[in-house]
Write a protein that binds this DNA or RNA. Structure first.
Lengths: 232, 232
DNA sequence: ATAAATCTTTGATCTGAATCAAGAAAAACC
DNA sequence: GGTTTTTCTTGATTCAGATCAAAGATTTAT
């Protein structure tokens, strides 16, 4: 399988280019460029002027945000077929977060003029993008609600489930999370501390809901976790 | 001043219709319909199928969200020139929140087919909407970061400042917040309780940073509040 | 193979903020 | 005008979860 068809396939996977003909795809492809990232490469820093619009073809990125005191949170993990840096379409946008590859990753990058031109040429692309962004808002609003109203352990449960849905694969013992997540990572994603995460996971392990190792988690009883996340 | 020119003016104010000609405006106007809401009217409920896209011409709406246990948070207040229910452009969207007028309000409503048709006809509208939505995401990401990493009193400070910027008017004694905000409202907006809000505002009043009454707040020293919100 | 670095666990303590309780003040109602 | 309802304040208490501390487990480097 040649790289081109490979890439074509991954683009196809992304919702942003649906409703377009094959020819139109090809046109879009030409306007972006393909990049392979080594693990732990910073793609852009929070605060930088936004110049690139990014689609992940393979691998995963981590999107993080720092506050004034330097405390970090994880906004989300971005997998194959997903977009980021949509802020590039803004007049004078700056990246509101930092993006880093957590493993080797293939991405396609469009610069700002290319994106603007594409959206004007194909209104469907703008509308599709709108849809994706609206899903992001929905996700964020839910997480915002959770962090305002729910207990830490509920939030940790929801975090694991949320990541599981996007990056989980079935195994004999349960659903495995395909991202190497440290306790600190889970804490940054849930708005808590690594100590609380560690204690919570230990408790769940005793109950048989999960199995966890170093940067590795298998959810053996997703149903119990869902139940718990909804009414503790 | 006749109602039409009034409305035209308020539409003009909204960023969503920029880059369009006057004729195009008029066309868009015809496709929506104007509604006047009494105070405390529910426009839509969280979970309802999304059928209408809304622009506020005058007055204010409150957008709230409930979790499974019935705890409420305030997502934002929506003032003149601002949009809501963008989720209507999704294929099978449901409103993720509840919208209610907090005072008498004039709004323009477009149904889903009209919005879709408009966006296809005028790519700029879709792109403008994209921009507005991206600003919303940025705001939410910031608030999410804050609620994950900052102290309650900092968050209350940021909440007041955030609302002040969108709904503040200069007076002799300081900047007055034009929305009647109860302690409970501020708590719901900041992710805390009315008791903590009351204590915090009392403390700031003693310091001379604010003056507050029943559902009424004047920020007498915005600079001190900003300072405090950034490094407590 | 040994050392160094990184990640995880668990106990002990502390503290910020929620909760509980009870008035006081202001507005709305009859 | 007086009663009822809503909102606000402040003190006392509680508790969830952060922080501190220290040891154990795994991985990586030399």
């Amino acid at each position: 399988m040649d790289p081109f068809s490979n890439m074509f396939e991954s683009l196809h996977k992304s919702d942003i280019f649906k409703n377009l003909t094959s020819q139109q795809y090809a046109d879009l492809l030409k306007k972006g460029r393909n990049i392979t990232l080594r693990p732990k490469t910073i793609l852009f820093h929070q605060g930088d002027v936004a110049i690139s619009f990014i689609l992940v073809n393979q691998g995963r990125l981590k999107l993080t945000k720092l506050n004034e005191q330097g405390k970090e949170i994880i906004l989300r993990y971005i997998g194959a077929g997903e977009l980021t840096a949509a802020v590039t379409v803004l007049k004078n946008g700056n990246y509101p977060a930092t993006a880093e590859s957590i493993e080797e990753a293939d991405i396609t990058v469009w610069d700002k003029p290319a994106v603007m031109q594409i959206m004007h040429q194909y209104p469907d692309v703008a509308i599709n993008l709108l849809n994706l962004i609206l899903e992001r808002i929905d996700d964020l609003q839910n997480r915002y609600l959770e962090v305002c109203t729910e207990h830490v352990d509920q939030r940790i449960a929801r975090s694991l489930l949320r990541i599981m849905r996007r990056a989980g694969s079935k195994t004999l013992s349960g659903i495995q999370i395909d991202i190497p997540l440290s306790r600190q990572n889970i804490a940054d994603y849930s708005g808590t501390t690594l100590y609380t995460v560690s204690r919570t996971l230990s408790a769940w392990e005793k109950k048989g809901w999960i199995k966890s190792g170093r940067k590795q988690i298998v959810i053996t009883n997703p149903h119990a976790l869902v139940q718990f996340s909804e009414n503790r």
